[in-house]
Amino acid sequence: MADSTSQRQAGPAWRVLLDRARTTLWPPHAPDHIPSPGLTPEQDRLRRLDRTRDLLEQTRAALIGGGWTGGAWFAVDAGGGRTRPVSTAEAFDLVSSGAQVGATCVVGAILRLAENPDTAASIEDAWHCVDELHEAVHERLGHGSFPPGRIYPHEQRRDHLRVVTGWNDEPGRRVEDVIDVVDRAIARTMIAACS
């Protein structure tokens, strides 16, 4: 019985180790997303899906490499090897600054990437990511979801943001749950691009 427990604990540890090695040896490539004039609606849809998938993959790498937190957008070093969640006021300062954060929630990771001038992501891409994460949460809960790549009104997107943030912050949430939802959202964009 003890062997099976240690084997179950070793599985996620190996996955984290392999993900860290992958991002260290093959850092994510920031794609060139300069929109071309005269795109057809289908080409524009595929471009949006590609940008959304790229930002979701960068978010996944940020969560694995930098750590995940619940209950706040960011956690910062509190000294003595501990971290503390930041207040809302502090979080707004950390979104666009180059300051180091110890861990991020899924929404915090997306926002930092969208505000980072070294990435090709935009705020519009961040909203598309939130939409896909919202649908992925519904799929994970066993509910139906809308097709990938759908464009929602801003009011509905704010609701999606609240749902994703609330889901991220639920007590008992684990980093594996969050990575699973991000992977589902990535898969949604890939499947939509192929159909």
Rank of each mutant, 00 (worst) to 15 (best):
A99T: 04
G65R: 12
D44F: 12
Q100W: 01
V76M: 03
A99C: 03
T24L: 13
D93E: 05
G67N: 12
P85Q: 02
V101Q: 04
F92N: 08
I34A: 10
D77C: 05
T59D: 02
A62W: 04
S97A: 14
P41Y: 09
R47V: 00
W73F: 12
A21R: 14
W68K: 00
A91G: 07
G79D: 02
L111V: 02
V106K: 00
D50G: 14
W26G: 04
R48E: 07
R51C: 10
I64E: 14
P28T: 00
G80L: 11
L46I: 08
A99H: 05
A21I: 13
T88Y: 00
G79N: 09
A78V: 05
R48P: 01
L63T: 00
H29E: 15
R48W: 02
T69E: 02
A62I: 02
G70C: 13
A75I: 01
Q43L: 10
E57V: 12
A21Y: 11
P27V: 04
A61M: 07
S36A: 14
P27D: 08
V101S: 03
L55S: 09
L63M: 07
D50M: 12
G67P: 11
T52S: 08
P85R: 06
L25V: 14
A78N: 09
T40H: 08
I34M: 05
A75Q: 13
A30S: 14
T40M: 06
G102C: 05
S36K: 13
R22Y: 06
Q43I: 03
A109G: 09
A89G: 07
G98E: 06
R22V: 03
S97W: 10
P31T: 13
P37W: 01
T69M: 08
Q100K: 05
T88P: 02
E90H: 04
A21T: 09
R112L: 07
L25R: 10
R22P: 00
D93H: 10
C105M: 08
F92M: 10
A72I: 06
